[in-house]
Design a protein around this nucleic acid. Structure first.
Lengths: 209, 209
DNA sequence: GTCTATAGGCAGATAGAC
DNA sequence: GTCTATCTGCCTATAGAC
């Protein structure tokens, strides 16, 4: 179980986060302004500053809430007690739900803009990926021990591969407005883990010298 | 052979593109300004407008030149006459070279910002991915016919999976400043294609209902 | 081709009234 | 909590001299 944050917002603050979240996921952190949020909510920019001192603080709150929600979703998958392969499918489905709303993963988007982010946001983005990696690693290790999943390399590297592949599949599928691209890629990746000869087997060769 | 564009720039225009390219690949299209380019080059913003009417035109030129360079690199891989698996590794190495300079793929970055881009830039980004897909598809089909590559689904879907996985591996590896993350993911992906039981085999299950 | 100067607008942010 | 009003600074872009 991974607890990333305990941030809880209600009322106006929560509504601000809702609006800002969509803006970041569709336009990027550098692609929207306080004026965009204010216009959408029919309040003034000054009111926003009452709830979140600056854009940096708003960004931190966004990641914190998003990560907490994601952690809750993963905990729910664990509680459902499904098979390892089904857990991986449930994991991929979390991404698909985001893509269906024509959004990018919040932290995938912020990963692209990483170099322009204030330090606290950077750290929070990495924590999000770390938490995902930890959860996947556990699923992969248990799955391999139970003979349900098959992969050659370390569970850690395989977890990282899954995260990257899903983030990238979203990244490319969204401009095409085509969720089928994401779903096909997901099938390819997960199917290889559920078959006898998974990725990173003995015959694996380095991709570069 | 895919010819994307024939754009050719020399002198100041080429230097502007060089500087702007790094800025887009590291900070995003919405994360830099004409002032940044001007400062780096020790010229004025007004001089930039002489070469590229506006940021949108500069963006189009950037993608056009990047895509042409990428197409040239793929043609060079073809000319080398390597085995299918080696071609895929060479393809992945193109991405690695970009990541080693701590840059994101230009079009991967622009894919994240897609919704904020002017239409001509959007179209150019999709053309880039389409060209990549076409090239990979050909390598995959020839590789399968020759018994060198193994995958269950269509070559098109597998090509798309590769593009997404490499873009995503870059996206996540860059914030960590860790090229090993990218290389491990690449090994996982490509190894599965070079082994008997590749991804998307008969046992493949849909990732979602 | 590059400059100075400047326009016009929007960014994030603050002060102080209500 | 939300407002009006305002500040400062940066943005893209243009005009016109050299």
């Amino acid at each position: 179980m991974v607890t990333i944050g305990t941030a809880s917002y209600t009322g106006t603050a929560a509504r601000i986060l809702d609006v800002a979240e969509v803006l970041v996921q569709t336009r990027g952190f550098n692609g929207f302004s306080y004026a965009d949020i204010a216009a959408e909510m029919n309040i003034t920019k000054a009111a926003l500053h009452y709830h979140f001192a600056g854009k940096a603080e708003l960004g931190e709150a966004l990641i914190s809430r998003y990560a907490a929600r994601f952690a809750d979703a993963l905990a729910a998958v664990d509680s459902a007690g499904a098979q390892p392969a089904a857990k991986l499918e449930a994991y991929a489905h979390l991404y698909l739900d985001v893509l269906r709303e024509q959004r990018m993963c919040l932290c995938g988007m912020l990963a692209a803009e990483y170099q322009t982010l204030p330090e606290p946001m950077r750290a929070a983005v990495l924590r999000f990926f770390d938490a995902n990696e930890t959860w996947l690693q556990e699923v992969l290790e248990h799955g391999r021990a139970a003979g349900a999943l098959h992969f050659g390399g370390s569970a850690r590297d395989t977890a990282r591969m899954i995260i990257g592949s899903l983030e990238g599949a979203m990244l490319v599928a969204r401009p095409y407005g085509d969720t089928a691209r994401f779903e096909a890629a997901t099938r390819n990746i997960l199917a290889a883990l559920a078959t006898a000869e998974g990725p990173g087997g003995a015959r694996a060769q380095p991709a570069s010298g």
